[in-house]
Simulated assay, not measured.
Amino acid sequence: MTEQSSAAPRLGEFLRARRTAADPARWGFESDRHRRVPGLRREELAQLSQVSVASIARIEQGRTHRASKDVLTALADALELSGEERAYLFVAAGRSTDDDGRRSPGTPHDDAVPVALAQLVHDLTDVPALVLNRRLDILLWSRAAAALFVDFGLLTRLDRNLVRLAFCHERYRALFGHQWESMARNVVAALRSQADRCPDDTALQALVGELVIHDSLFAAWWGATTHPVSKPPRLTCHHPTAGEITLEIHVLRSEGHQRADLTLVTCAPRPNSPSQQALRLLLEGIGDVDRAVAG
Rank of each mutant, 00 (worst) to 15 (best):
V53W: 06
C237Q: 01
P105D: 11
L140V: 01
V188C: 06
H250M: 15
P24L: 01
N272Q: 12
R253D: 14
R33A: 15
D77P: 00
R160T: 04
V251I: 15
S275H: 07
M1E: 10
R197L: 15
Y88C: 11
R173W: 06
S55N: 13
S5T: 15
C168T: 15
I286V: 13
I286R: 06
E248H: 08
A147N: 03
P114N: 01
T64W: 11
T107W: 08
V53P: 00
Q276I: 03
T266Q: 01
F29R: 01
L282I: 05
G223V: 09
A203I: 03
E44V: 08
D98S: 14
R259E: 05
E284D: 15
G39M: 13
F14Y: 13
A112R: 15
L281M: 12
E255P: 04
S49D: 03
H34M: 10
L130R: 01
L81W: 01
V127E: 02
R171G: 13
T236N: 02
D151K: 04
S182M: 11
E84L: 11
S82K: 07
E84H: 14
P274C: 03
E170H: 12
L279I: 02
I249V: 14
D77K: 07
A7G: 06
L139F: 12
Q119H: 07
L89D: 02
G83V: 09
R26T: 11
A46N: 00
R42A: 12
R58L: 12
R259G: 02
E80W: 00
V229Y: 10
E13I: 11
E44I: 09
L162R: 02
A174V: 04
P114W: 00
R26M: 10
I59Q: 03
A25Q: 11
T125Y: 04
R192S: 07
L211V: 11
S68W: 06
D196L: 14
A54I: 12
S254M: 04
Q47P: 03
P114V: 00
L154F: 07
I138A: 04
C198F: 15
L45H: 03
R173E: 09
D288T: 10
Q50V: 03
L155C: 08
L283N: 04
F152M: 08
L15E: 03
A144I: 01
D200V: 05
V212D: 12
S254E: 06
G12I: 05
S52Y: 12
R291P: 04
V53Q: 06
L282T: 03
S6K: 12
L140I: 02
Q4T: 15
D110S: 01
R171L: 14
D151F: 03
H109T: 13
S142G: 06
A195I: 07
A260L: 05
G295L: 13
H257M: 09
T97E: 12
A78S: 08
P108C: 05
M1S: 12
A147Y: 02
D98Y: 00
T202K: 03
E80L: 09
R270S: 13
L140K: 01
S5N: 14
H178S: 13
A147E: 02
E170P: 14
L75S: 02
R63H: 13
E284K: 10
R102Q: 12
S55A: 15
V115K: 05
V53L: 11
A57C: 09
H227E: 06
L252Y: 14
C168I: 06
F167I: 06
T266H: 01
V37D: 11
E30Q: 11
A112L: 13
G39F: 08
V212Y: 09
